[in-house]
Amino acid sequence: MSLRRWSVTLLAALVALVTIAPLIWMVSVSFMARGEAAQFPPPLWPESPTLENYRLLFGTFGVGRFLLNSILISTLATGLALLFTIPAGYAFAKLRFKGRDAVFRLLVAALVVPGQIGMLPLFLELKAMGLVNSYAGALVPWLAGIFGIFLVRQYCLSIPDEMLEAARIDGASEGQILRRIVLPILTPIIVTLALFVFLGSWNDFMWPLIVLADQDLYTLPVALAANSRQNVQDYEIMMAGAVVTTLPVLILFLALQRHYLSGLLTGSVKG
């Protein structure tokens, strides 16, 4: 029994190590001197760790600017998504209004349509609105988050109607009920949704690539992709760029993983 226990655990450890090895290797190479990684056999650790790549990245390549763009866009996307989806999700779960169920069924049907289908017309639409090549243009898809509405609605369904009814009899307006009673109950799902949108908008690539033409507006993934198509030989600096791009979301996930994983299951299994 004990042998079995250890062999299973050992296998899991091995698979886990292989899985995170690329991430460890990315960090390791980012501290290597220039040209150090391009050897055979490939070195696993830097001979004398250096911050030179990061200095170059933030100095010559001006990555600070892209980092700020990414932080700004992801933060705004998160705030706006919460502002739009939380009241809607609550309304679909708890407020009786005409046409609610029909509209909700349409939203369910719309989930099978991938967002890329409308990308070209959306580009033209935003061009007509003067939003192409602006932060606002990059934010737009995050306002239309059907998945977020589902997540909030699912969670709201467990709120007892009597609680809302009692508040109504006490003379609370619908807005007050949402702010004072519903929002505090929703805290866990708000954290989950915020995490989803922040990570999603941070990692997003195709839409910002299309809508942001000005280099000054590039997010980290767009800037990294543009550079990777040119500086193919500079292993170490590209790895430093990859670290700056992906480490913030990785840390955020590790800190809040419980919220992320539970939300993932609400969204896919029960939803």
């Binding site: 995170i20 690329p22 991430l23 990692n203 992709a225 990859a242 670290v243 791009t245 979301v249 990785l250």
Partner: peptide, 13 residues
């Protein structure tokens, strides 16, 4: 963990 990393960054890696 790989699922939450930035696609572009890990593609470069």
């Amino acid at each position: 963990a790989p699922y939450v990393t930035t696609l572009v960054a890990t593609a470069v890696v």
